[in-house]
Simulated scan of single mutants.
Amino acid sequence: MAYDRSAMLKLLRPAMTRILTPLGRALVRRGIGPNAVTAIGTTGTVVCALVLYPMGQLWWGSLAITVFVLFDLLDGVVARMGGGGGSTWGAFLDSTLDRVADAAVFSGLIIHFFLQRDLLMTGVTLFCLVAGALVSYVKARAEGLGVGCDVGLAERPERLVVGLVSAGLSGLGVPYILAFGMWLLAAASAVTVVQRIVHVRRQIGAR
């Protein structure tokens, strides 16, 4: 990437933490733990994506999904404030439910295109769904073998941003933006898969 993803996250995370801390404190007082927050965020994302997107409500769907995606940060805030939940189990649950949420977002868009009888974009978005899952799988499998794989053009945050922004703008009437976003994401995801495979091969070869 042309930018330093780690540096950007280090800049954004403290600001988001300050914004979410009051809400996190309120949840902890009510006995709601980080794992419950993770589950609520995923459930909200799945419902909004699979109901609003097929209905053609792309703007409201994207807006609602964005709110629930913020739960991905809120669960960490709750955990740090003593909301309970084992860190190992919580990390596993969070990573697993992230995949569920991602699949729901792109499945909703696939259904939207299919109902519009746009078979080309249905196929492109299906490719985005499969390629996104493969991006995550390659990293998980590499790390399971003890090989670092934190590289690539389009990781989960980039995929979500492109998908949600293009869908939201399309819902506001911006022409061709959703198709452009899906084609861009398909290409970026394919490149990322190749980047990660090559990176792992080089790492193993260096051993």
Score class of each variant (00 low, 15 high):
residue 67 V to H: 00
residue 54 P to R: 01
residue 55 M to E: 08
residue 52 L to C: 07
residue 57 Q to A: 13
residue 49 A to Y: 10
residue 33 G to Q: 06
residue 65 I to K: 08
residue 46 V to D: 10
residue 48 C to Q: 03
residue 66 T to S: 10
residue 32 I to G: 08
residue 72 D to I: 09
residue 49 A to M: 15
residue 55 M to I: 06
residue 57 Q to H: 09
residue 34 P to L: 10
residue 50 L to Y: 04
residue 41 G to R: 04
residue 56 G to L: 10
residue 67 V to A: 08
residue 65 I to F: 09
residue 63 L to H: 05
residue 69 V to Q: 02
residue 53 Y to W: 02
residue 69 V to T: 04
residue 37 V to Q: 07
residue 66 T to Q: 00
residue 62 S to K: 06
residue 36 A to L: 14
residue 31 G to E: 04
residue 54 P to E: 01
residue 32 I to Q: 00
residue 72 D to E: 03
residue 60 W to V: 07
residue 44 G to E: 06
residue 66 T to E: 00
residue 65 I to V: 15
residue 42 T to L: 14
residue 70 L to P: 11
residue 54 P to K: 02
residue 34 P to G: 15
residue 62 S to M: 09
residue 52 L to K: 02
residue 72 D to L: 10
residue 68 F to V: 11
residue 53 Y to S: 03
residue 54 P to D: 01
residue 37 V to S: 07
residue 63 L to N: 07
residue 71 F to C: 13
residue 45 T to V: 15
residue 43 T to P: 12
residue 51 V to K: 06
residue 47 V to M: 06
residue 58 L to Q: 02
residue 71 F to R: 02
residue 66 T to K: 00
residue 60 W to A: 04
residue 52 L to T: 03
residue 46 V to T: 13
residue 50 L to W: 03
residue 67 V to E: 00
residue 56 G to S: 08
residue 47 V to W: 00
residue 47 V to N: 03
residue 62 S to A: 14
residue 48 C to M: 12
residue 46 V to M: 14
residue 47 V to L: 13
residue 40 I to Q: 01
residue 41 G to S: 07
residue 58 L to W: 02
residue 45 T to I: 14
residue 49 A to R: 12
residue 32 I to F: 03
residue 44 G to D: 06
residue 34 P to C: 12
residue 53 Y to F: 15
residue 37 V to D: 05
residue 51 V to E: 04
residue 31 G to R: 07
residue 72 D to Y: 02
residue 65 I to T: 11
residue 51 V to D: 06
residue 34 P to R: 06
residue 68 F to C: 13
residue 70 L to V: 14
residue 60 W to H: 00
residue 71 F to I: 08
residue 40 I to L: 14
residue 50 L to R: 04
residue 55 M to F: 05
residue 42 T to M: 15
residue 33 G to P: 12
residue 43 T to K: 07
residue 70 L to H: 10
residue 34 P to K: 06
residue 60 W to L: 10
residue 67 V to W: 00
residue 51 V to P: 11
residue 38 T to A: 14
residue 49 A to D: 12
residue 69 V to C: 05
residue 44 G to M: 10
residue 31 G to W: 02
residue 38 T to Q: 12
residue 54 P to S: 01
residue 70 L to S: 15
residue 65 I to C: 12
residue 57 Q to C: 10
residue 69 V to G: 00
residue 47 V to Q: 02
residue 63 L to D: 05
residue 70 L to I: 12
residue 59 W to H: 01
residue 60 W to E: 00
residue 71 F to P: 07
residue 48 C to A: 15
residue 59 W to V: 12
residue 38 T to V: 15
residue 68 F to G: 09
residue 60 W to C: 02
residue 49 A to T: 14
residue 38 T to F: 11
residue 46 V to C: 13
residue 36 A to H: 06
residue 55 M to N: 05
residue 70 L to F: 13
residue 57 Q to Y: 08
residue 64 A to S: 11
residue 36 A to N: 03
residue 35 N to E: 10
residue 61 G to P: 14
residue 64 A to N: 01
residue 41 G to E: 03
residue 49 A to N: 14
residue 43 T to A: 15
residue 57 Q to R: 10
residue 49 A to I: 14
residue 65 I to Q: 08
residue 33 G to F: 09
residue 42 T to C: 15
residue 42 T to H: 08
residue 56 G to V: 11
residue 68 F to W: 08
residue 65 I to H: 07
